[in-house]
Nucleic acid binder design. Structure first.
Lengths: 154, 154
DNA sequence: CAGAAGTATTTGTCATGACAAATATATTTA
DNA sequence: TAAATATATTTGTCATGACAAATACTTCTG
């Protein structure tokens, strides 16, 4: 044996983490596919931003990065692209000139509503055959995972 | 209302898909952090390749891309990096000259064993406080998600 | 067996993710 | 109030993900 320390071998076949990772990849791929099939020139990540702005307009890039669990640097680039695409607007704050407040445009709202439909469709595809009780347990457990990892990373 | 069609609004707060996506991001982030803290010059994705090669040596890039649910183009680049890092070797097949067979090196094996320890550690962090029954249900449901999405994408 | 079709891998491009460093503005403090 | 700190955002770099196109072999078929 190459390694003489205690061997805690991970078995991907039974690993919860691994199945979460693969499911996430596949779910995103399905959503991505549905979006491109329908010629929607937007990514799942960009939709996430639109979603949050349509729920509460006027968020900053920093607030959005927390809500979406994304790096602020990447959020900055995403909002640039969304602004260029005319889906959101950035307005410099009057009292604090470091801040941009972000607003969804009319074009963005229209697209967002269509995206809800496609997100709904992609949800139905991925969750087919899974009963409500299991879904509840999954959401509860996944919330716990998120809490655990947030605590570790803090 | 902007949209006059049937409105199937998605609520991220209760969405299984959304919680899978966020959990996956956070789990990877924890593992990534543990790896860089320990000065392991490798990414979670690259470990995935090492893992599979240590389980069954001599796989091709195509086989690896299926096992890891990754794009073949990206797998090609990942194996290039792993070869440069001296963790795997690519050997041209004698009978079919299009194929490379991939082998983990001694250096790769040593690293792989260390990575199992860190994967184990990161699993414990993310799953703390989740009971065995819930874990079983999660794995079973997530396998179903993977099947559902594979079927759709095929 | 030559050309067509299929297969394995690579390369190019654009979006995202992690993370360090830079920039601009605000706030705190000596 | 000037200097140090803190905060919001941006830019740069490298790895990854999706996807189209190119390359190099193999296999199939007329």
């Amino acid at each position: 044996m190459t390694n003489t320390s205690a061997m805690n071998k991970v078995n991907l076949e039974t690993s919860v983490n691994h199945h979460i990772a693969i499911s996430a990849i596949m779910i995103k791929r399905v959503f991505f596919k549905i979006l491109s099939r329908n010629k929607l020139n937007i990514t799942p990540e960009q939709w996430n931003v639109l979603y949050h702005l349509s729920e509460s307009d006027g968020l900053t890039a920093g607030e959005l990065s927390e809500l979406t669990y994304k790096d602020l640097a990447n959020m900055s680039r995403m909002t640039q692209k969304l602004e260029i695409a005319g889906l959101i607007e950035k307005k410099r704050d009057d009292t604090d000139k470091r801040i941009f407040k972000l607003f969804i445009t009319e074009k963005g709202k229209v697209l967002n509503n269509r995206l809800h439909e496609y997100a709904f469709e992609s949800t139905n595809i991925s969750l087919e055959g899974i009963d409500e009780a299991s879904k509840k347990i999954m959401v509860k457990s996944l919330k716990q995972v998120i809490l655990n990892t947030e605590k570790f990373l803090k």
